[in-house]
Amino acid sequence: MARDNNEGMFRGFLLGFLIGGALGAVFAMLFTPKSGKEMRSMIREKSAEAKDKASEYLAEAKTKTEEIIEKAKEEAEKIKKEVDELITTAKQKVDMVKEAVKSGIETYKEETKKTKG
């Protein structure tokens, strides 16, 4: 659980770092004296780089999400199996108690007939 929290913090830091870097690059380009053609070319290049990085981050997030979902499914199946086993055991014990009570009642009836008769 702590590991998941650390991974989340790292991802948040990484995302913030990437966004901050991209914004810094955009501001640097805007305030650096260059021709319009050079500026547009640089903006296209940096935009493509940012898009590639974002795509990589999203692919990684998708993979991690799928892994987490698979682990959750496995844990849910494990818990379901354990609960089913507990229910089966409880039903068996209830049946045993019912049989014991029934046997006790039968024995009591037989003994009371013997005493009366």
Results as ranks from 00 to 15, higher is better:
4 D>N: 06
5 N>C: 04
6 N>Q: 14
6 N>E: 13
7 E>W: 09
7 E>K: 14
7 E>C: 05
11 R>F: 15
12 G>F: 03
12 G>Y: 00
13 F>D: 02
14 L>V: 10
15 L>N: 05
19 I>V: 14
20 G>C: 00
23 L>S: 07
23 L>R: 02
25 A>L: 05
26 V>D: 00
27 F>Y: 10
28 A>P: 00
28 A>R: 02
30 L>S: 03
31 F>R: 03
32 T>S: 02
32 T>V: 01
32 T>F: 00
33 P>Q: 09
37 K>T: 09
40 R>W: 08
45 E>N: 09
45 E>M: 12
48 A>N: 06
49 E>N: 06
52 D>K: 14
53 K>E: 12
53 K>I: 06
54 A>F: 14
54 A>L: 15
55 S>C: 07
58 L>K: 12
58 L>T: 10
58 L>P: 05
59 A>I: 02
60 E>S: 11
60 E>C: 01
62 K>D: 11
65 T>M: 15
66 E>R: 10
66 E>F: 11
67 E>P: 02
68 I>H: 15
68 I>P: 02
70 E>C: 03
71 K>R: 14
71 K>F: 13
71 K>G: 04
76 A>I: 11
77 E>P: 03
78 K>Q: 11
79 I>E: 15
80 K>M: 01
80 K>F: 03
82 E>M: 02
83 V>L: 15
85 E>P: 03
86 L>Q: 14
86 L>P: 03
88 T>M: 10
88 T>H: 14
90 A>T: 05
91 K>H: 13
91 K>Y: 05
91 K>Q: 13
92 Q>R: 13
94 V>Q: 12
95 D>M: 14
95 D>V: 05
95 D>N: 13
95 D>L: 13
95 D>Q: 11
95 D>W: 06
96 M>G: 07
96 M>K: 11
96 M>D: 11
96 M>R: 08
99 E>R: 09
100 A>Y: 08
101 V>Q: 08
102 K>Y: 09
103 S>Y: 04
103 S>P: 02
104 G>Y: 00
105 I>F: 04
106 E>S: 06
107 T>N: 07
107 T>H: 05
108 Y>Q: 11
110 E>I: 06
111 E>P: 00
112 T>E: 11
112 T>D: 04
113 K>C: 03
113 K>W: 05
114 K>Q: 07
115 T>I: 07
116 K>I: 10
117 G>H: 07
